[in-house]
Amino acid sequence: MNRLNQTFAAAKRDGRKLLCPFVTAGYPSLESTPQIIHAIAEALGPGGGVIELGIPFSDPIADGPVIQASYTQALAKGCTVDKALATAKSARGLGVSIPIVAMVSFSIIFKRGTAEFAKACADAGIDGIVLPDIPLEEAPAIVDTIRDAGLRTILLVAPTSPADRRAAIARLCDGFVYYLSVSGTTGERKELPTDIGPNVEALRAITQVPVCVGFGISTADQVRQVTAVADGAIVGSALIRRISEKSTPAEAAKQAGAFVKELVAGVQ
């Protein structure tokens, strides 16, 4: 069984929710990423969450300024796709056993070829792929190819997605459904919309697949609010912001671990 499915199944059985911290591969440096992942895994505890590993892209249209800047810096410092995937492998070498999913633009996947890219992910110890810029219309063949490599696919549902699309998207997701708390780009929001609860409930009514919520979540309070209804909360920009661009690998790992510990307190 795929690590991702296992983790969600165990959490469901135990009545726990998950925290899904987002890490940019190669930020603040390639050397620091495996240590950051390791520190986060420690802070989450066994089965406590899923790491989302952002593969840097030159033109991430779904990302706000914080993640954009982390991608730009990682690329400027020489992060390639292979090196980004290798950070997951190194993290596995450090004993990280929680699921890792890659968040990656289809521009990068297509260039390599979906089958080859999925295989490279599997070889690096990655369990699933989040497709932030693939809508329902383009998804079916891509999802099949990713599944053939033994990986799971995570597609996004937006607050603007009508009910029939939500159902069709959920049917294609075999990892989890990524529900966007807001219409817009990634980045911290002071307040989350009040319709997250009803929207997640509506998703649950149409799918057995776990539902995680992301975009705009930045505090333990917001994690509490989200995990009260969803299976997991995804935190990206707020975590990246805690990691100073000049940190050594050890400092970066410490900064990331400490913030994730803070967020874990909010998990229901």
């Binding site: 810029d133 809508p135 699309r165 998207i169």
Partner: peptide, 20 residues
């Protein structure tokens, strides 16, 4: 109907934009 010119074209955008 999905905007394909042969293999080209398509709609490779975030789900958020699909409604619009």
């Amino acid at each position: 109907v999905h905007g394909h010119f042969g293999q080209y074209g398509g709609m490779y955008v975030p789900e958020t934009l699909m409604g619009a």
